[in-house]
């Protein structure tokens, strides 16, 4: 089987700046500061996914699911580790980037264009998208008049018709009603049959059970389980039940402990050891000489 996606010891750390000023300072400082307080949103995650698999990702809120989905769709880069992706990923999230001032129709054209579709391809898929989104006459209204369900329907319809190799669905189905969710699942099944890889992030374990091949459980930035869906979903179910049964104070204590583990003092290793400062143009300094020279000539009225 062909490897489609591979994560090798991937971590994503977010720098914590207590003050806006510190952020500015870190942009302009020439030397890399040794110690930085960071939040490990994803910590040392490794997995391999093969062509045609559908992977479910479960986890509590803030456990790092969305960070992983953003890294999968190459929106953000990992701070450590390597990601190998074979093909063109496409992310479907609730906040699908639609232009609010344009009509649904124009948004379809615009987004297809931005996804790199050619004119004739756009013409071909537009009726399918309109049909799938099922917005009726609203398709010619500006998107700002849409309800949140309509927006996510349109976003989903567009993304799914741009023919991605890898589809990342970040809780996008939870907004629409069950009839639309069903429609989407049917469409996703079609995708599966074509041998495409799907990552499916959801809180609905019933959807996952019917739909996924394997399930990954992310817990406070770390990969807790990755395996057969029944096993992992049962374990996750037990875990949430256990957590829910805790007393309120115990819940708080547990959460605090787990979060504390994610804060770490560590040096963020930038790829290629690059300095993250604005002022390090490096060898190009010689370029300023003509500018200064002619500037001086101008000033003295030559």
């Amino acid at each position: 089987m062909k490897v489609k996606v591979e994560f090798k010891h991937v971590s994503k750390a977010f720098q914590i700046h207590t003050k806006q000023f510190e952020k500015l300072l870190s942009l302009f400082s020439l030397r890399r500061r040794k110690e930085n307080k960071v939040f490990m949103a994803v910590n040392d995650v490794s997995f391999t996914v093969y062509e045609g698999e559908t992977i479910g990702i479960v986890g509590l809120n803030g456990s790092g699911k969305s960070t992983i989905s953003n890294m999968l769709s190459q929106v953000i880069k990992p701070t450590e580790g390597e990601i190998y992706i074979d093909g063109q990923p496409s992310l479907i999230a609730i906040s699908a980037g639609l232009n609010n001032n344009l009509s649904g129709m124009d948004n379809i054209k615009l987004k297809c264009m931005m996804h790199g579709l050619k004119d004739d391809e756009i013409e071909r898929v537009t009726p399918d998208i309109i049909d799938f989104a099922d917005l009726g006459d609203y398709i010619n209204q500006p998107v700002k008049n849409y309800s949140s369900g309509m927006r996510s329907r349109l976003g989903f319809a567009i993304s799914i018709h741009t023919d991605p190799d890898i589809l990342v669905i970040d809780e996008a189905l939870s907004v629409g009603d069950s009839t639309f969710a069903n429609k989407c699942l049917i469409k996703l099944d079609e995708f599966k049959k074509k041998g495409k890889t799907i990552f499916f992030i959801s809180h609905s374990s019933s959807q996952m059970k019917t739909f996924c091949d394997r399930v990954m459980w992310i817990n406070y930035g770390e990969m807790k389980e990755f395996g057969s869906k029944v096993e992992v979903l049962n374990k996750y179910g037990r875990y949430t039940r256990w957590f829910n049964e805790l007393a309120e104070s115990e819940k708080k204590k547990y959460k605090k402990e787990m979060l504390q583990k994610q804060y770490a003092n560590r040096e963020i290793a930038k790829k290629g050891n690059e300095n993250s400062s604005i002022i390090s143009v490096g060898k190009g300094i010689g370029l300023f000489i003509p500018l200064i020279l002619f500037g001086a000539l101008m000033l003295f009225g030559y």
């Binding site: 769709s73 190459q74 929106v75 953000i76 063109q88 496409s90 992310l91 999230a93 906040s95 699908a96 980037g97 639609l98 232009n99 931005m114 996804h115 790199g116």
Partner: peptide
């Protein structure tokens, strides 16, 4: 950025 980052643009 929000709009564009979710695709290869």
């Amino acid at each position: 950025m929000n709009l564009v980052s979710k695709m290869n643009f």
